[in-house]
Simulated assay, not measured.
Amino acid sequence: MDRSRPALLRRVLVAAVVAVVGTVILIPGSASAAGTGTITGFGGKCVDVSGASTANGTKIQLWTCNGTGAQSWTVGTDGTIRSLGKCLDVSAGSTADGAKVQLWDCNGTGAQQWTATAAQDIVNPQSGKCLDATGVSSADGTALQIWACSGGANQKWTVPGGSTGGGGGGGGGGSFVVSEAQFNQMFPNRNGFYTYAGLTDAMRKYPSFATTGSATVQRQEAAAFLANVAHETGGLVYINEINTANYPHYCDNSQPYGCPAGQAAYYGRGPIQLSWNFNYKAAGDALGVDLLHNPNLVATNSSISWQTGLWYWMTGTGGAGTTSHNAMVNSQGFGVTIRAINSIECNGANPAQVQSRVNSYTNFTGILGVPTGGNLYC
């Protein structure tokens, strides 16, 4: 793991703040549909609007499937799930276990954002928690709530249109140029948190990642991203920054929003070791997730964690003057991605670190059966 990251991340990631803040605009009523139909869950029951009522606060429950409009849901590409002209909503925007799920006027808040994953979870990114059948019951009238994701059968759902990244559009997912077997070959000792499903779900936020250019270019970009991630995390082993002594140093109190999660809450997490309060805010604003108040989502929600890595890959320029994505799709070479992510290593300052990244890239392109291309070093 790169011990120079604490000083680096302020230099490298701060440039992305201005470029990213404010780019996510959710307009109530503007969702296009990823799919419309029933949402089925525990016991084969359907997600149902109690009494087919359209009143704000109406209970959302399990009920025997009956084909009525109260059981017809539209999964929007903006991350909403709608029925009867209103949105699936977490009461009062709560992030607590047991918070009620209800019907409410669509308003574009995080309480109405949902990610239906390839693992059949329906996650509220604001809380990082899963749609859950209360009491592990499948009885008619069982209320739905949010609860810490457990993988239990009462948290598994089949949605119309399949999994969706909640605002990222199409692409990614099952069409990733790296198969799950190849991913496992690349990371034989990875932490179970860094799931393949989490990565492919996160890709829906950035549909041009590893889908741009020729088949060779797509594989080279995937290999380059994963090689840099491998270096940052010790082969997808580390979730949190190892050096806990650095934790209190990532709060920039000059920012008007301060550090609401605490002075020591913004240490490195995830595949790029996201650090500093301003970077958590910028990434969260871009992804539609409140990471400033809930930074630990990067260490507890695999999809969100991967999303932060892709956010920087697709938007951060560091010392390169271009993004890592653009560098790969425009044949500028792997070395430019190193400069975008950690320019301090370049120009002979830390050749061992650069070589580590290049070695991973060379290994991964070999697994994917494509040449490395030129300009490997920075």
Rank of each mutant, 00 (worst) to 15 (best):
G168N: 09
G141S: 12
W147D: 00
G166R: 01
N184V: 08
G151R: 10
G174M: 08
G161L: 12
A197R: 06
K129P: 01
T211H: 07
Y196G: 02
Y196W: 11
L144K: 06
P188R: 14
T195M: 12
G168R: 04
A215K: 09
Q155T: 09
Y194D: 06
I146S: 01
G167T: 05
S179F: 13
G168C: 09
R190E: 13
M186F: 03
L131P: 01
S138P: 04
G172C: 11
E180F: 08
Y196D: 05
T158C: 14
T158H: 13
K129C: 04
D132Q: 02
L199W: 13
G174Q: 12
G152P: 07
N191D: 15
G167D: 06
N184I: 08
G141P: 06
I146Y: 02
G172S: 14
K129F: 00
D140A: 11
G165C: 13
P188D: 14
T164I: 10
G198Q: 04
L144I: 09
G151L: 09
L144H: 04
G128M: 03
D132G: 01
A153T: 08
T142P: 02
A143E: 11
S214R: 08
K205L: 12
G161Q: 14
C149K: 02
S150D: 14
G174K: 12
T212D: 04
A148R: 07
S163H: 10
G168F: 06
I146H: 02
T142Y: 08
G151P: 04
C130D: 01
Q185R: 14
N189M: 08
T134H: 05
T212V: 03
M203G: 04
T216L: 09
R204S: 06
V159Y: 04
R204P: 02
W147M: 04
G192N: 15
T134N: 09
S214M: 07
I146P: 00
F183M: 07
G171A: 15
N184W: 01
G167R: 05
A148N: 13
A139P: 03
S214F: 04
S175A: 15
L199Q: 04
S175E: 14
L131V: 03
